[in-house]
């Protein structure tokens, strides 16, 4: 059956070329996705420098909104953040949380040119950011949820 051999040969040759074609089709799809991602990334970082952290800092400082205070009585429902603010059970703290699960000096939020950094001050029961305990200073983003003891704050910056 020479005919069958010929057909198989032709299919074989088509498959050899289609393999390379498909590889490049895949590559083009990947590169297209990278391209759109880079475009969005550029737009996003542009918009964040225009009306993001740096400029808005001058006009209105970031603040912490109390989302859930549990059974604890807090003095305010929102706190404006100055350069450095400490959170904890002690009277000297900027934000006093009178809860036995909160350490005397539990956490701090300080500001530099990048934005606001949340640091856990080696507290016993940890500081949670969006449900995860933080191990070191972490940059805060808008709408981040900070949980200390029973109290949950929302960061607005």
């Amino acid at each position: 059956m020479p005919n069958k051999g010929l057909v198989l040969n032709i299919i074989g040759i088509i498959l050899q070329y289609s393999l390379l074609g498909l590889i490049y089709y895949f590559l083009s799809k990947v590169i297209k996705s990278v391209y759109t991602d880079l475009n969005q990334f550029g737009q996003r970082s542009n918009s964040s420098t225009k009306n993001g952290i740096n400029k808005s800092d001058l006009h209105k400082p970031a603040k912490l909104l109390v989302v859930d205070s549990g059974h604890i009585k807090l003095t305010q429902t929102s706190f404006f953040l100055e350069n450095t603010i400490y959170l904890g059970r002690n009277e000297q703290n900027g934000i006093i949380i009178d809860d036995s699960f909160v350490s005397h000096e539990h956490a701090s939020i300080n500001k530099d040119q990048h934005g606001y950094w949340l640091t856990d001050l080696h507290s016993t029961n940890k500081t949670y950011l969006n449900g995860q305990p933080i191990a070191e200073a972490t940059l805060l983003k808008n709408d981040d949820l900070i949980k200390i003891g029973a109290v949950t704050f929302s960061f607005k910056g």
Binding site: I11, G12, L15, S18, L19, L22, F26, K29, V30, S33
Partner: peptide, 18 residues
Amino acid sequence: LLVVAGIIMLNGILAVSL
């Protein structure tokens, strides 16, 4: 993308088998 990658693999294996 995974479907395309899968087709690439099948294509190559068929080419070798043929």
